[in-house]
Amino acid sequence: MYEASRAHVPDKPDCTEEESRHMTKGFIYSIAAASLVLAGSAVAAPVAPDDVKFVDMTVAESLTGQPGDPKAGRETFANRKKGNCLACHANSEMSEQLFHGEVGPTLDGVADRWTPEQLRAIVVNSKQVLGEQTIMPGFYTMHVGDRVAEKFVGKTILTAQEVEDVVAYLTTLKEQ
């Protein structure tokens, strides 16, 4: 139904003041992210987005070889410039945050329904698990739409470690 996605080199941006301020911030984020990676460079580099292996709708191994941090994951989940998961999902565990979206299902008890390996696959590239038509973005994939804004070209929404953190947080959402 929707036009097949393909990465695209955008035209020169019509950059407003608002955007350039934003761009600077994005730039600072990426520097911060880069130095984080450097700081942790004793461990192997994370799996690149295109190298993530999906087997039966699961991603078995941690993308970083490290376990995720559920506390950091909780923050990434709520952060509007990172996971922004509350835009579309309700989550009772986060009731201190007002306004939970309802585009997707509630994530209450999500760890009872999916294994950690499945949850990783959903966060990395939701389309691999939920189907090509899903509205949920893939958070660690290069399979993106047309005309990606210049400041996001070649970047994923979350870093590999942020994905692991979010997955670690999701695995704590149990009802049983």
């Binding site: 996605s5 739409g145 804004a149 929404i157």
Partner: peptide
Amino acid sequence: YYTRYGQLDLA
């Protein structure tokens, strides 16, 4: 209107 755009890949 039905083309997916951007990093979020949405139409």
